[in-house]
Nucleic acid binder design. Structure first.
Lengths: 270, 270
DNA sequence: AACCATCAGTTCATATTATGAACCGAATGT
DNA sequence: ACATTCGGTTCATAATATGAACTGATGGTT
């Protein structure tokens, strides 16, 4: 079996790969460079792009003639977001949490080694975290990510950078990015941290994602007790002091539990 | 030329067609029904779906085993939205407009025969319009849509239901949907309305989209004077009375003009 | 001004790739 | 007990996607 990474349609995966090349750093691509970057023949890239264009998934900047994401991507994304039951179930609880704590709250899911922000409720403070829906952060540096990774780990799943990746799991061995001086990048340390998180049921991220930013997260569980999402509150380190963390953790934990029950999930107590 | 609607990759277009089957009415599909609905062989649909799944564009509901949109769709959509320069340019102006008028404002683009909401700023009133980003409305029943269609028309473009569709333009001849008793559904009447809109530079939609809802819209133009988007304010008919329309139109028009200039566009004066 | 490099986009012969009829076993309904 | 419908798989076939080579335009360099 030389190279057959996936059964299925190659051209479709290639097309999606093209879409994924767009990022906040790079809204727009020229054909040649884009093709080069994804490792496709220019002709192939061109054909795939025109196909995507005909469906509105990409569009061309009339000025620069560059390729960018199209309106249909927006439509689909918004729809995907709305069809996520988690968001609607969590919204009122998040709002309540913000009222209680005065900090910004959000709900996130694990996708790959990142957490994806599904929804956010801004706190009243001016110095607050701005949680942009749809953005992603490295899981190992966030409270929500730790909570979800801890659940993965407990379920025998693979954890990024983890030392216990099964045989042949080379894809997973990639480096844990250091985002601040306090980001946990040592796989063993992360493993121990996750073990602790799994035990107590909530996680913190103290200036591990961004200097000066602190967050506390807890898991939302489905009817089988699997952690399907996590919520957190976050704000400046000046307000989320070590002394206040336990109290906040309790609130976040309880809110997560309430959302779980809304979804027909069981209590977070293991 | 028998059937060769587009050059390009068939499987990619089919895959996107699958994605587009998801809607607010239908978050989730079973394989067979979905395949039947898009007119694909079940095997083909299955393969395309697994390919999309491997890229995270669709995901499966672990409970029902049904197919739904995946997290990657959310990521892409949010990114597409952020990479739209219009949104960031318009935001502060829309906020100012809301402060001035007390009504809800939004910015929209034309995609096909619909307008797509790119961004919205809610008014302070409780009885307000809720403008959900990413949703679409039939262009002919909205103020923004009329503004954009009027520009199409002026530029010799095709207009939905329009009598002046070029020869062989059958796709375009489809019926104008009647959403309220006041929706314009007669192509000739719409044509006259668009002519008027093009002349004066702004449009209204008085209980044409939804009974009790009134909106006023004006176009945003790029450096070549092409209308690339439109903004509007909208609210309950009780507040947006006929007497108040001209004054509101002036405000909306000026705001649109200001956004155009922010984008390096020229003044809306033809 | 001649040159070179790089761009977007097109052509076309090739075989790789996607395709769909038929099939399987499991649920579900009658 | 039988009939449907489901999700999913197999496999021979040809239709489809592929990429090397080409065109023509643009822009920078010497």
């Amino acid at each position: 079996m030389p190279t057959k990474p996936y059964a299925g349609t190659q051209s479709v995966r290639r097309a999606i790969a093209l879409l994924k090349m767009f990022s906040d750093e790079r809204h727009e691509w020229g054909l040649s460079e884009l093709a080069r970057e994804v490792g496709l023949n220019k002709t192939t890239a061109y054909r795939l792009l025109t196909a995507l264009q005909s469906e509105g998934m990409v569009a061309r900047n009339p000025l620069t003639e560059g390729w960018r994401l199209g309106p249909e991507a927006i439509t689909l994304g918004a729809l995907a977001l709305r069809s996520n039951d988690l968001v609607s179930a969590a919204r009122p609880e998040l709002e309540a949490l913000v009222r209680e704590t005065g900090e910004t709250a959000s709900i996130e899911v694990l996708v790959g080694n990142d957490v994806l922000i599904l929804d956010g409720v801004e706190g009243p403070s001016l110095v607050g975290a701005s949680s942009e829906v749809g953005t992603r952060w490295p899981a190992h540096a966030t409270s929500t990510g730790k909570v979800l990774l801890a659940a993965e780990r407990a379920g025998g799943g693979k954890v990024p950078g983890g030392p216990n990746g099964g045989p042949g799991r080379s894809k997973n061995r990639r480096q844990l990015r250091k985002l601040t001086p306090r980001t946990i990048t040592d796989p063993d340390r992360l493993d121990r941290e996750l073990e602790r998180v799994a035990e107590r049921g909530w996680a913190t991220a103290v200036e591990e994602l961004e200097t000066g930013y602190v967050a506390v997260g807890a898991p939302i569980r489905d009817h089988e007790g699997r952690a399907v999402a996590a919520i957190s509150i976050g704000g400046p380190a000046a307000r989320l002091t070590a002394g206040r963390i336990p109290e906040l953790a309790k609130l976040v934990f309880r809110t997560a539990d309430r959302i779980s029950r809304r979804l027909g999930g069981r209590s977070a107590r293991r």
